[in-house]
Design a protein around this nucleic acid. Structure first.
Lengths: 277, 277
DNA sequence: TGAATAGTGTCTATCAGACAATATCAA
DNA sequence: TTGATATTGTCTGATAGACACTATTCA
């Protein structure tokens, strides 16, 4: 089999032959080939993994971007990610691998969950590439993302991407939008906010997470009691204290609950025109 | 290229050569090949689409299952689904196609959303098959699922699958569990419950949805006002009425809101031992 | 008329949000 | 001492759940 550079020209990856070359429009009424059609076999696709890595930088929700080194979209900002390494690599393992390669982050301490799969046929000009996106939540880190393959990784405020002020390669803007939306929702019913914090944190640090991700302002006094009223959300972490200017605050760490009861309801939802009857 | 029957023996679908044959264990510390490694190209995988179709039958949350006609797991119950038809078929379109093929349901009237992607390397003995699962919500239908390819489709109570009383092929039990969990959660914050109902419905029918999916009993009087207090959730559908035995009920249809404010909070969460501090 | 279901009224314990007041640190 | 942040207290209007009661149909 001849060697070829990947990324230079469109892929012709289907190794199976069709009875008729498929015309690439979508017709839901067409009957699919069945297993008894001797000449048909399922088409293969390329599988990629992309990462939406969220963190708080300077009290703003931020996303890790890398500059693409090759075509297509060379030079454009994009999500970190890449193809499966070999055909039997687990999806989550591939996400963890990309995380350590492209961002030098230690996956074992981070929140990582599957976000969604993006498979629009024309999303990658090289051919049929289906991407499984993962959402990663990281605590604020020392400024530079050290020792990465893609040395040109950088944090971008999520708002710049959501507003369209910064354009990303492929369909990565949509993926970021979905990732931020997922994070905003999970803040209400899961302890996800603690994943933005260090192992121990103060209640006001936790509040900053909610304020940055939701884009709202919360009353510190009500927030203080509200989070403590949720059983298993946060637990006291000894008597140590952390101080900047004012009175030192108690330290807490994440509890063991995975769902919050009662939930922390997001205030002031865009509740527009009353349209009920 | 020789023709071969699909499903008879393991696939050797990777068309690219590796520098070293991959050993199929997961090592997150291994460096992946980079684009500058001339001899490496991304591996291809087979992509399938599986459907978790939920409905209410006899006031019970039920899942549509089909009996597998071929190996592996021949004769076992499984989720409806199948491979992409051709390499440029859109994922959602493939889900809609499977829906009409395997269940004869009209996708244009149903709720359909992506659920998750399942890609454990050994989940399919035929080779590397990655499956994108979709969640479908259907209103109660006339008994038989007519005119299907897999004529042996049938509804199974979700509880039988969640409890392990009924085993499914592949990792489909896990997929069903995730689908039911997704539905249970979305009932709180989205109008998903209306997708279980006909175009018009009574409030007590809507209540039955909540009771069946959540597995709880609700007070009809409080439920009655609660749902109407959510702006845009349900809107009155004229003055028509529907009656069985007692007083006829007003009819409603789904409103235009996609999120519910305030949410309908699920009662009595398994709130176990108090573990706070 | 009685059974059954739909819909309304009302009470109460609890909660969310507003905000005053106090505590404890650094400079 | 002052400024800043943390923590506690208290008040008030809204709400969730319990449940009595009325309304409207069919058998």
């Amino acid at each position: 089999m001849p060697r070829r550079r990947f990324g230079d020209e469109p892929l012709d990856h289907p190794k199976w032959t069709y009875r008729e070359p498929p015309s690439c429009h979508i017709d839901i009424n067409v009957r699919s080939p069945t297993m008894s059609d001797e000449s048909w076999s399922p088409p293969a696709v390329l599988l990629a993994v992309d990462l939406v890595i969220l963190t708080l930088r300077d009290s703003r929700l931020s996303v890790l971007l890398v500059e693409r080194g090759i075509e297509p979209h060379q030079g454009d900002p994009a999500l970190p990610g890449g193809f499966l390494q070999h055909s039997c690599e687990d999806l989550r393992a591939a996400a963890i691998r990309e995380l350590s390669e492209e961002s030098a982050l230690d996956a074992s301490r981070l929140h990582l969950e599957q976000l969604g799969t993006y498979g629009t046929p024309d999303r990658d000009p090289r051919g049929r590439v289906v991407s499984v996106a993962y959402l990663v939540i990281a605590p604020a880190l020392p400024e530079p993302i050290a020792g990465t393959d893609a040395a040109d990784a950088s944090w971008a405020p999520a708002e710049e991407i959501l507003s369209g002020a910064r354009r990303l390669a492929f369909d990565h803007e949509e993926i970021v939008t979905d990732g931020v939306e997922r994070a905003r929702n999970k803040l209400e019913h899961s302890p996800l906010a603690t994943a933005f914090c260090d192992r121990t944190f103060t209640i006001s640090q936790l509040q900053q997470v909610y304020e940055a991700v939701w884009g709202v302002e919360l009353d510190p006094r009500n927030f203080y009691r509200k989070v403590q009223a949720v059983p298993g959300f946060i637990v006291s972490a000894g008597t140590e204290r952390r101080s900047t200017r004012g009175r030192p605050a108690r330290l807490f760490r994440a509890g063991s609950r995975t769902t919050l009861h009662p939930p922390l309801v997001r205030p002031d939802p865009p509740n527009p025109e009353e349209e009920e009857r």
